[in-house]
Amino acid sequence: MVLSASLLYGLCGAALIGLGLYGFVVHRRLIRRVLAFNVIGSGIFLLFGAAAYRDPVAGSDPVPQAMIITGIVVALSATALALALIVAHARLARSDALPEDDRSGDPDEGRP
């Protein structure tokens, strides 16, 4: 099997999903988790776009393209809301991590 562009970007998308998942789990800072969530998202988009490009003769398929554009905008909306919630959380709890994550580290960290 020839290493086509579609195959290459599809595998790249799969690797990005794994990388994003890892970052999403290990980070305690909520902002880093939102960033990792965005890496997972763009990995999924890349996987989807690459799957739609497996037949280069037919050209790229406009339907997945339109769905990915919609996805990018929805991901931005979710990111903006999540970040606003994190800022509000930081204002009230004086911490950038969830209470259970704060406790598992330094016991006094994140207390007002």
Binding site: H27, R28, R29, V34, D96, S104
Partner: peptide
Amino acid sequence: LLAALARVARKAGKEPASAA
């Protein structure tokens, strides 16, 4: 992300450890 980082740094003060 940059704006949220600046706002959280001002409000949260001390940063938790970055990774588990």
